[in-house]
Amino acid sequence: MTYKIMDIINTRRLGLIEKEDGASTVWRLPVEMLHQIFIHCLPNTDHLKVSPNMAPILLTRICRRWREIAMDMPGLWCRLFVKVRSDHEDWEQAALWYGLWLQRSQGLPLSLSIYSLPSEAAKLQNLLQPYTTQISSLLLLSENAAIAAEFPFEDLPGLQDLTLSWRDNYRNVTNFARSISRLPCALRNLKLKRITVNPFESLSTCSVWTNLTSVEIMIYQAHESLDLLNLCPNLSSLNIGLGVEVVQPLKACMHTNLQYLSIWSSTWVRYPPGDLFNALTLPSLRILEAYYVGWPHEDFKAFLARSTHPSESLIFGAGMTVTDEEQAEYRALIPSLEVKWRNYLV
């Protein structure tokens, strides 16, 4: 729908020039209606790219009135994808566009997706420096984890959502722990994508965990998932990947606030989830998803039985083997339970 609207705007752009007699129907549209049209013209993506052929920049090229209205709508300019370029001339031009875009946000909270190499950290900091207090959501992409060590997280007091993603597994845990320790206390949602934290103990002294309500993480040892839950008393959502089988006994752990749990493995983990569920009590759990893991049927039934708040959904994904008889027993235990199947990992 968005692209269809943009095609129409592109086709008629030259015809929608401001007329002195005000005869143009588009010219007479109320500002409030244009606001709604402009919002629906935005691409259906989390972060917008700077492009003269896409909204919101395209909207500023239609006519003078549209330009004035679009430039005075800070909500159009609050989401941005930034790619820090190594070429000096290319970056100067790009930085000019990024700066104009961010200025038009007029102080509203910003959601940014940034791709940068560690060598370009100075360019990135110079660009963001005037807007550090506005950044509430940040997706930081790079070839490796060194970018996180250089990023000034401590200068983002309003940061609530942070996603870190890079291509190689992070081995320099000391530097990574230093980065995590600099995260602001306002942070509530933390996603570490394609990152295996080993050992998790190196991050356990960071105070940021206390206030988190949502975490996505890949850890190496199953017992460290219990350590994570103990560190995050306010956690309501956990998406966790397990690395290897249990190598030490698991201590009992109760978490009273967790409502959503997604558990998965990059390889087939034959029995850790069974031991994990024996140790876990999650009285508020509503939704459980599982991918590429396995557990003893009776152990899992016992886990469900310990939930004082009946779970609503049990979602089995790729790599799972659960018989119809076992599903029936789960439903018998919790009559309101909805069992679903999903073939992909979210």
Rank of each mutant, 00 (worst) to 15 (best):
Q93L: 13
P199A: 00
K19N: 13
S165E: 15
M73F: 08
L108G: 06
L76K: 04
V322K: 04
Q221I: 10
M71Y: 08
L127T: 00
E224M: 09
G241V: 03
F81T: 10
L58F: 06
Q327C: 15
L156W: 06
Q259C: 14
A332I: 06
T210L: 12
L235D: 00
I315Y: 02
S265V: 03
Q125W: 11
P30E: 07
Q125A: 11
C185W: 08
P335E: 01
P283C: 07
T321N: 15
L140C: 02
V84W: 01
P335D: 01
T281P: 04
E245D: 08
L139P: 04
N126I: 14
H35P: 02
K4Q: 11
M254K: 14
A148K: 09
L58S: 03
A177N: 02
F316I: 05
I5N: 15
D155C: 11
S202V: 13
L76M: 04
P296L: 08
P157D: 07
E216I: 07
L80K: 05
E201Q: 12
S51W: 06
F176R: 00
S204H: 05
L80T: 04
L212N: 00
R65Y: 06
E245N: 08
S119M: 10
E18N: 09
W27G: 15
E224I: 06
R182G: 03
P249C: 02
L16W: 15
E245I: 03
E298D: 12
S311F: 11
D72I: 07
L139V: 14
I62P: 00
R188Y: 04
E143P: 05
S202R: 10
D72K: 10
I17F: 10
Y344W: 11
G99Y: 09
L16E: 11
V322Q: 04
T213P: 01
L162I: 04
L140E: 03
Q248L: 09
L110G: 03
P157L: 05
V82N: 01
P157T: 05
R13H: 05
R182C: 05
L192I: 04
L276A: 02
I57L: 14
A279N: 02
Q248G: 08
E201L: 12
A94E: 10
T281A: 10
S111I: 02
S313L: 10
L238R: 00
T308F: 07
V31Q: 14
H88Q: 14
T210H: 14
Q134N: 10
L192G: 02
L242Y: 01
F151T: 00
Q160C: 13
N230C: 12
P118A: 00
L141A: 03
L124P: 05
P272G: 01
V246S: 12
G294P: 03
A290R: 05
T323L: 04
K49Q: 15
Q248R: 15
C185R: 14
L139F: 11
Q103P: 05
R12M: 13
A328V: 06
V246E: 13
Q93E: 12
S142C: 03
Q160Y: 07
V26G: 05
G158S: 15
T163V: 08
K19D: 11
T60V: 07
Q103D: 14
Q103S: 12
R306T: 00
L226M: 03
Q259T: 14
